[in-house]
Design a protein around this nucleic acid. Structure first.
Length: 486
RNA sequence: CGGGAUGUAGCUCAGCUUGGUAGAGCGCGUCGUUUGGGACGACGAAGUCGCAGGUUCAAGUCCUGUCAUCCCGACCA
């Protein structure tokens, strides 16, 4: 070629492989998902980022409704004495709770916690609402903000205030509560895979990683490009712990009085952080079509007046809008290269180019965001008449391709290990998901964490044939994924 | 919350050692030529140097405190 230095492909962000953390933050800001707020550890969710949250919200909400849940809203503030009723729960959350101690110019007689989660308020209300087995189950969800006083924050992954949904249900039997918890875990897994295109391992958390006050905690765990795991959703069986602490009782059919079995489950905007890290590349965001605020952007390539090109682009735009697609016509007075870079940074899955050449040939040029420039199938011409029908097809190919790529990475970075020293080495090296036969003992887990800072992500039943724990040699009781985590 | 680093224009940074009138590139605005991968020319706007004290005739520069951000740990969605 030449000795002229190559123009950097992207001016705004460092290469993803060079420093994932720096890349991640630059993308969050440059793609205008978030801005740092004038409050420590908090972000402003900007319109484009909020639109991503709305994609998640509408998809999950539809699934919640389909499975019989209803939305409601409970207060942000929780009286101190109320919060303290469930011992493990309050102990677990104490370090992260923010307190309101003043109001109306006076010191409050009782401090109010800003909700770190809502089991307590909701449980209190359930105690009032539930009298009889006929009142059960209660299946409620709320979409709200949460405050947890974190030491170290990053956009989406960990902020003082964050958005999530929390479902809270009450059931007459343990079995029904257990089924609810599995159902919601499965909804999270399915959403993550089919919408966010993020493959996950679903399973049960160890006792050490369990939600404060729960009897069983289940999670979906994704793997980030740096080999660290990210918990993307959780579903908890609370047993009768909260029912006992908050007096959620009901009369049974045979006239006895029992405590209800409750559950809770949540997914936060952290899921957005996961998909940003999993799919993004050196040019910025790469959004799976189902999560993308814009499925396609039309970039007219205008020469001179270019009235005919613009008019044609508008006709394409109108057609696509009428077809129900999330599409934008970029008619800004900028050079095409700027627009390309702009929408690539924002991760729009499909770019539709329409210039004089296209117009003459009566085609629109499709460019896929998920493929490298010049790659096979990255760019192709589609006749005018087929554009509207071709887009959904192409988007679905992109969606599948992103998931397949992420799944290949997850599998490639999941190691089934049977040798102790190799296991410890891989843990330390942040090598990904390490799948071992495990004893399930807290001491074993603590020792691994102390030596390597890896923890159990989640566990599942033995497959058969395993005899001893890879880490400590005690009898094996589970299979577990270990990894360092976010 | 411990260890380290950094706060100067919207962004990336220089200026600080050795105190003396606030700088560059990119971006932004207007006009013109342009427009199939981040154009070019002319003109222009833009910073109480994170904040608060102190030292000094004089502080972006020196001192103290404080806030925020980033990295590494401990803790967690």
């Amino acid at each position: 070629m030449s000795d002229v230095p190559a123009t950097p492909l992207v001016k705004e962000i460092p290469p993803k492989a060079a420093d994932l953390s720096e890349w991640y933050q630059a993308v969050c800001y440059k793609a205008e998902l978030v801005s740092l707020a004038p409050v420590r550890g908090c972000v402003v969710l900007r319109p484009y980022g909020f639109a991503m949250w709305e994609r998640l919200q509408s998809a999950l909400d539809a699934r919640f409704k389909e499975t019989g849940h209803e939305n409601a809203y409970f207060p942000l503030l929780i009286p101190k004495t109320l919060l303290a009723r469930e011992e493990q729960h309050v102990a677990g959350f104490a370090p992260e709770v923010a307190w309101v101690t003043q109001g109306g110019g006076e010191t409050l007689t009782e401090p109010l916690a800003i909700r770190p989660t809502s089991e307590v308020v909701i449980g209190t209300m359930y105690a009032q609402w539930i009298q009889s087995y006929r009142d059960l189950p209660v299946l409620i969800n709320q979409w709200v903000n949460i405050v947890r006083w974190e030491k170290r924050t990053r956009p989406f992954l960990r902020t003082l205030e964050f958005l999530w949904q929390e479902g809270h249900t009450a059931h007459a039997t343990e079995d029904e509560a257990a089924r609810e918890v599995q159902q919601m875990l499965d909804i999270y897994r399915e959403f993550s895979e089919t919408y966010a295109a993020v493959p996950v391992y679903a399973g049960e958390k160890s006792a050490a990683e369990r939600f404060a006050g729960a009897t069983h905690t289940y999670s979906i765990e994704a793997l980030m490009p740096d080999g660290r795991a990210l918990q993307a959703g959780t579903s908890h069986e609370l047993g009768q712990n909260f029912a006992k602490a908050y007096d959620i009782t009901f009369a049974t059919e045979d006239q006895s009085v029992e405590h209800a079995w409750t559950t809770s489950w949540g997914m936060s905007w952290r899921m957005l952080g996961a998909l940003i890290m999993v799919h993004g590349d050196d040019r910025g965001l790469v959004l799976p079509p189902k999560m993308a605020p814009l499925e396609a952007v039309i970039v007219p390539i205008v020469r001179g007046e270019g009235d005919d090109v613009l008019a044609a682009a508008r006709r394409v735009y109108d057609t696509l809008r009428a077809a129900g697609l999330r599409v934008k016509l970029d008619d800004r007075n900028l050079r095409p290269g700027n627009k390309f870079a702009d929408w690539e940074m924002r991760g729009v899955p499909l770019r539709l180019e329409l210039g004089a050449k296209d117009l003459a040939a009566e085609v629109v040029t499709f460019v896929r965001r998920d493929k490298e420039k010049g790659a096979d199938g990255a760019k192709f011409a589609v006749p005018f008449a087929d554009v509207a029908s071709r887009i959904p097809h192409t988007l679905s190919e992109i969606q599948s391709a992103l998931f397949a790529k992420a799944r290949a990475f997850l599998h490639e970075r999941t190691s089934r290990v049977e040798d102790r020293s190799e296991f410890m080495r891989l843990c330390s090296e942040r090598a990904g998901m390490l799948d071992i036969a495990w004893c399930g003992l807290a001491a074993c887990e603590a020792a691994i964490k102390a030596q390597t800072s890896a923890t159990t992500r989640n566990t599942r039943p033995l497959e058969g044939g395993e005899t001893v724990c890879t880490a400590c040699g005690e009898p094996a009781r589970l299979r577990a994924y270990f990894a360092q985590s976010y």
